[in-house]
Amino acid sequence: MKRLNVLRNSVLSKAFVLLLPLLFGIGALGYAAGEDAAEGHGEEAVHAEAAAHGEGGHESAGDVIMHHILDSGVMAFEPFAEFHLPKIVVGGFDISITRHVVFMWLAALILLLVFGYVGSRYKSMTSRQAPTGLANAMESLVEFIRLDVAKSNIGEGYEKHMPYLLTVFVFILLLNLLGLVPYGATATGNINVTLTLAVFTFLITQVAAVKAHGIKGYLAHLTAGTHWSLWIIMIPIEVIGLFTKPFALTVRLFANMTAGHIVILSLIFISFILKSYIVAVFVSVPFSIFIYLLEIFVSFLQAFIFTMLSALFIGLATAHEGHEGEAAH
């Protein structure tokens, strides 16, 4: 069964591809995550002390919004309880577990469980049986990424990139959606996480380009086929172009996932700032619900855009069109 092979080879048997950005992401959070957690502990102590003395006990709207957006070392389930995550320092590097790391682990676990279940369903099916339920939905997802993203943008040899593209799409989608559930946190709203994913796309793109054209062809591509007298201009431009692509991936995903949460929280706080039930009923609540529903769509859209652009960058780096003309010129 061709579809069965695509599903198993792309996700189930190569799911370790997901673990790489997770492990690298924890390291990428590094000092920033640990310092945010430490600052969060310190700020909480200051607020608690101020509240005990009756001074500064109320946080401003901006403080609450930033507390929700930024990473921290506390899992808060207000008004029920809160848990302080362990602080870990190894060799002078702070790799403390933060709530964004926890939600990355949760997304990885959900992905492995879902596709593990789907893979077991396929193994028990005969060649004449059609998938149903969750297996059918996952097969449709695999076919969509395979045909409309990988094959259409990369072309020949797209199969070898399917495991990464499919994994990164589902991983980003889960992270986006987990940020919309109660007490959730959007790990893709952390620029360290989006940067890590963009770096993986960058590395895979460069390796694919070298494999497709060889070292000589890869270096020749940096000259854009121009006369040697223009290399002093073209080579720096081409090198800068290599790094603007992962930068665009990083900022696009980070900014879109952060902006939506800020807008929702800002709309909610308008009614509290103005102290008006009319504003709450006719402005804050309906517009917040609208933006929330829009964020669900944006979660899918941003996962698709990141995956599609990754496939496009790989396709452009491995394309052979025009190289023969450049060599002849």
Rank of each mutant, 00 (worst) to 15 (best):
L4D: 14
L7D: 03
R8F: 08
R8T: 14
S13R: 12
K14T: 15
A15M: 12
L19W: 08
L23Q: 04
I26T: 12
I26K: 01
A32Q: 09
G34A: 10
A37C: 03
G42N: 09
E43S: 11
A45C: 00
V46C: 00
V46S: 08
E49W: 05
G54S: 06
H58Q: 12
S60V: 03
G62S: 12
G62I: 06
V64E: 13
H67L: 02
H68P: 00
I69A: 11
A76F: 00
E78I: 00
P79S: 10
H84K: 14
L85Q: 06
P86G: 10
K87G: 05
G91E: 03
G92R: 03
G92I: 05
F93R: 13
T98L: 03
V101A: 14
W105C: 15
W105E: 09
W105R: 01
A107G: 13
V114H: 02
F115V: 06
Y117K: 09
V118L: 03
S127H: 06
R128S: 13
G133P: 07
G133A: 08
E139D: 15
S140P: 00
G157V: 03
Y158W: 07
E159G: 02
H161S: 12
P163G: 07
F171I: 06
I172H: 10
L175E: 11
L177S: 07
L180N: 11
Y183I: 10
G184D: 07
I191H: 01
V199A: 15
V207L: 13
K211Y: 01
H213I: 02
A224V: 05
H227N: 15
I233K: 10
I237T: 09
V239E: 00
G241C: 05
L242P: 02
F247C: 04
R252M: 14
N256I: 07
G260W: 02
L267Y: 01
F269Q: 15
F272M: 12
S276K: 05
Y277V: 14
F290I: 15
Y292Q: 09
L294R: 11
I296A: 13
F297M: 12
V298T: 13
I305M: 12
T307A: 13
T307I: 06
F313P: 00
G315T: 07
H320A: 14
